[in-house]
Design a protein around this nucleic acid. Sequence first.
DNA 1: TATGAATGAGGGTTCATTCAT
DNA 2: TATGAATGAACCCTCATTCAT
Lengths: 226, 226, 226, 226
Amino acid sequence: MTEFGDSADSTSVAKPECQPFGRPAAGEDPIKREQILDGAQCIFMRMGFDAASMNDITREAGVSKGTLYVYFKNKEDLFAAIITRQKLAIYALLEDLLAKKLSLEETLYQFGVILATHLLSEKAIRGQRIVIGVIDRMPELANTFFAHGPNSGPNMFANYLHKQVELGKLKPMDDAVLISRQFGDLCLAGLFRPRLFGEMKEPPPAERIEKNVETAVRLFMNAYGR
Amino acid sequence: MTEFGDSADSTSVAKPECQPFGRPAAGEDPIKREQILDGAQCIFMRMGFDAASMNDITREAGVSKGTLYVYFKNKEDLFAAIITRQKLAIYALLEDLLAKKLSLEETLYQFGVILATHLLSEKAIRGQRIVIGVIDRMPELANTFFAHGPNSGPNMFANYLHKQVELGKLKPMDDAVLISRQFGDLCLAGLFRPRLFGEMKEPPPAERIEKNVETAVRLFMNAYGR
Amino acid sequence: MTEFGDSADSTSVAKPECQPFGRPAAGEDPIKREQILDGAQCIFMRMGFDAASMNDITREAGVSKGTLYVYFKNKEDLFAAIITRQKLAIYALLEDLLAKKLSLEETLYQFGVILATHLLSEKAIRGQRIVIGVIDRMPELANTFFAHGPNSGPNMFANYLHKQVELGKLKPMDDAVLISRQFGDLCLAGLFRPRLFGEMKEPPPAERIEKNVETAVRLFMNAYGR
Amino acid sequence: MTEFGDSADSTSVAKPECQPFGRPAAGEDPIKREQILDGAQCIFMRMGFDAASMNDITREAGVSKGTLYVYFKNKEDLFAAIITRQKLAIYALLEDLLAKKLSLEETLYQFGVILATHLLSEKAIRGQRIVIGVIDRMPELANTFFAHGPNSGPNMFANYLHKQVELGKLKPMDDAVLISRQFGDLCLAGLFRPRLFGEMKEPPPAERIEKNVETAVRLFMNAYGR
DNA sequence: TATGAATGAGGGTTCATTCAT
DNA sequence: TATGAATGAACCCTCATTCAT
């Protein structure tokens, strides 16, 4: 795999169990790690990938170059970690939602609203723009948005759909992952491209998103509901 | 206007009628201009905006640095010219189509197929990725995709819609430009994001696009048809 | 102030009192700073401002490009620092002299000799040539030779003259700064232009300067002495 | 000698005697030559030697690059021709004066006024600055200001002095050329350096120059008059 | 003869990364 | 372990000069 593949290491959450006292091992202090990610996110989102300099980032994060390079192998790795963090934050929200055991339609609706609200937020849009801009150099990173690992958003939702099929709430479906992506796409329909290309300068108002998601849920239920 | 605005000059097609013989004026030889654009397009699409170096481009295009800078005032201008060329090529196809005076539904269908086929092609996807990646530095360039100039794609289509309204084929509509964009979005539904993020490695097969567009036309006609 | 004004920062002497041990802060090691200035002075004086390349300078100074740009923000700033260093060195000599409290005539004489000897030295002549050559781009730098800051040469001498007036040794004078400049001019009379234009290849011998200054002192005392 | 030495060729006045009719030989049309010099002078004086580009000059002069390079071997040669032209213009004025056979003192006075007025003019000051700035690359050019050729200013004046000695109007003198330079220096005393370093932004008013020259003449006559 | 398009070395400057402290 | 000074390749762009037309 590409060298980007290695970044899974620095991306995984630090495990502090071996150092209950004293200074954490090099590159293992989760607080410092977050501090670096916060600073780097700020700079990357403001400047883009290439225009952001590691110096800017160290300054913003308040750490030294050496420390930065202990926590992250290089600029790409650092950026990947930021994107991963963003993604995991959304996944966590979605996971919480699914754990709530709401009705199917309410779940679909909430799921769509959370997804759309976050993916269309300024922060996420900027992140997605950068990811898209460096896709040739870091192709794995873009994939990451779709379906990596069993806890990824689409897989999580696909599992939910499967369960609903077993419960008889939905018709049997061949490729639940594909369908879960299509549902996501439907929730973003008409909003994503204008946001991405900067035509829509602000995130759409909540009502706009809600209406979009309602339509998406209706279409989804028409197609797969029982 | 912004400095990007100037690029319209170098973007406008050279007018060869005055120079049937002899050497073309500096920066005015359309063949050399195309040669440079071809080379630059190749490099930009392969490497992205920042990673592409002007040296790479001169090598690929087979011209010297000096010549390059006679035709294009800087890297941004050169890139803008490439994107504009792509855009104009699509507009030309769409214009040809509208000139054919097919039936409304056939026109909608053909329009959608052409649009989707081109916007999802490898070349266009790569171009759009780069545009998105440099959107903070060149915001005009992204706008260009939507509705600049009376002959832009959305405006052209909006004019067509207006005429159909006058002919009584469509219901009156408030914002034809918005609606024409929504129609375009619909044609790309479920395809654009996977292509943009590299999940769908190849352009979708023609049948896939056609099915998408059929659905889009049906929805459109349900909403606005008479 | 102009961007040249900023250079005062990099020009000010580093304050080493805080860093008795360890590595000096970036751009703050006075030894390295001198090393760069020495190398740059050598190159600038040999080639002139434009013909000197930053590469030449790094090579001569034995530092890398990056280091050079940590200490000096650009070529102009670097050159300004060299000139300022030269100027300050002369000012220091003149200040020492004035502190000696010699007789008025002896002071005038010594002042003139020091001034002329230094301004006509090869190093200073070359520096002045370059300053003159770039005067349109760096006008502040040329002014610097005349009367900036309370410790500048002319002001320092003007203060001395004022004191002598108060002591009754000299007649009251309207514009002591102007007069102190005229005295300097007189000390250089007949020597400055030939040196500047390269007709006089070597600095004039000490006796020549002394004779010039004697004449200048005599004229001065005739005009302003009591 | 340096390659600059060759420039004597392009500096000498074109001799059109062989081409009474038709187009002048390449690089021999004196009108075009003047046209180029005018444009180049304008650009050089405005921008300095290095910052002036040959493109700017061709544009200002209204000739093509090729033509420019037919008339002048290179940038240095072109600049040398401008300086030579300025110098010759002053020499011509001085020669006219000497031909008038005025009284000794009147001649000295007029000579000094003409010299100072021209050398302190904005055009000449800018020219001298540039000459000084490139003196390492074009040392001959600076010498040119002092005493090249039998018709140079100082030699011309020295000849005049010799004749006055023979007429018994002046005391015998060892080095008339040196003395004539000193006289020139005296006429510029107190004015040249402030002008050159840009402290005196405008040429001094006529009265100021006249007073300076009167003093110079008086000193001269005290020293050498009979 | 006159033109100006083309060349490409070289300019100043930046910045990801390393490693002595 | 943490620091940040140092590195130097690579960046975009300019321009004196040449030579095909």
